[in-house]
Design a protein around this nucleic acid. Structure first.
Lengths: 217, 217
DNA sequence: CTCCTGAGTGAGTGATTACTCACTTTTATA
DNA sequence: TATAAAAGTGAGTAATCACTCACTCAGGAG
């Protein structure tokens, strides 16, 4: 997994449809930064324009509405970048043929940790905004189910058949692994200050240890 | 623990300082409902007034600003109700003298589950708003540390001395237990639809099982 | 070179919203 | 009962903000 930066994927993706001018790029960058920092509702389009070094009207020329700017950031993230990255992560994790459930969980936790660390701003925007956007929420849940949870579930089942993992329904297990990692990442990257935590590797080690001990036979 | 409803505690608390008139009460109720449903930024004071059945100016008569209305809901929640409930929960849990780490985790998870279930709206408002209110966030972190994490840490240490819990620093363990439960509650009450989940008791059982298996010797 | 189209501009606009304030009503006290 | 203070009202205001639109500029095609 060479590239964890979702913005580059976002631009790569949108380049297939529309020309991504330098100004449009700067608008998106400024919006991501300001939305993450101040929240969508507390960020004025005039601020975004100023930060991007463009006229305010340029934002509307490219995106139509402020809401569309937000969606232009979040929808491709959900629909393409997240699934693409999920596919890539699972390919990479599975390419190494994890011999134990621990190897799998560790690889998953590590890759996801790096992903959220690198895309912290998008993560923050996301958490804040999707609570009140049911379409966004449903899109995300659907894609998480399809691209991540079902994969985890499959792998859990494999390890259960090998007798390596306890006999809780794989669907429940995969969901609980997911929510456990989610709680950890949220605390680490959104809710708490950086100085509360140890170095990344040790934090990952600890959470992986607890998860793995919790689910192995 | 008889009363999980934070609003009643909120009113009990504020009754000590100022008279809590019927209208003021209705304003708070309406605000909690609308903030939770639509978000603070998307809720107009005119809507709150209408919902509460008061004139818009009455809100400002009681609370001064819209921001103060939000803080009037959230600050007592952080400063008094949460700690009070944390104290009460730990007293109750400890009054029963948990013999095993499993008893402790189960009691903690169950009480907290019920708490968040009953105060889902406040939880939602909280998660959404505290991301961008550093004072709120710091208040909360400080109170969580003082009233919850240090308690959990103490108990973990006791069980570690009995050889019942693995040898990870108690501080780390208590934090990871906290983030694991947080991820679970967030998914259950804020991020996902109700129909994804099983009945409450089974969900609690599963997450407790994983946590306990993960940390016991 | 001219013309056309698309990108970009920024002053201005209309809508929305938090809040004010002059006034009315209610409550408590003497 | 009268008076003063507190609670409540809602029309109106100032500020903010998303957005418009008449215009300019740049680039490409013929």
């Amino acid at each position: 997994m060479k590239n964890n930066n979702i913005l580059q994927l976002l631009m790569q993706y949108t380049k297939e449809g529309t020309q991504f001018t330098d100004k449009k790029q700067r608008i998106v960058l400024a919006a991501i930064e300001l939305f993450a920092k101040k929240g969508y509702a507390n960020t004025a389009t005039s601020e975004i324009a100023k930060e991007a070094g463009v006229a305010e009207g340029t934002i509307f020329r490219h995106f139509g509405t402020k809401e569309n700017l937000l969606l232009a950031i979040l929808i491709p993230f959900i629909k393409h970048s997240l699934p693409q990255m999920a596919d890539a992560i699972f390919e990479e994790v599975l390419a190494e043929k994890p011999k134990t459930i621990e190897e799998f969980v560790r690889a998953l936790a590590t890759e996801r940790f790096m992903f959220f660390k690198e895309n912290r701003d998008l993560f923050r925007i996301f958490i804040k905004e999707m609570i009140y956007h049911d379409e966004l929420k449903n899109e995300l849940i659907s894609h998480i189910s399809e691209h991540a949870l079902s994969r985890i579930e499959q792998i859990i089942q494999d390890f259960q058949e090998k007798g390596e993992v306890i006999d809780i329904p794989a669907k429940i297990l995969s969901r609980n692994i997911f929510t456990t990692l989610l709680g950890f990442f949220l605390s680490r990257f959104v809710l708490m200050s950086d100085n509360v935590f140890l170095d990344d590797q040790r934090e990952i080690d600890y959470i992986v240890q607890i998860i793995v001990n919790g689910i192995k036979q």
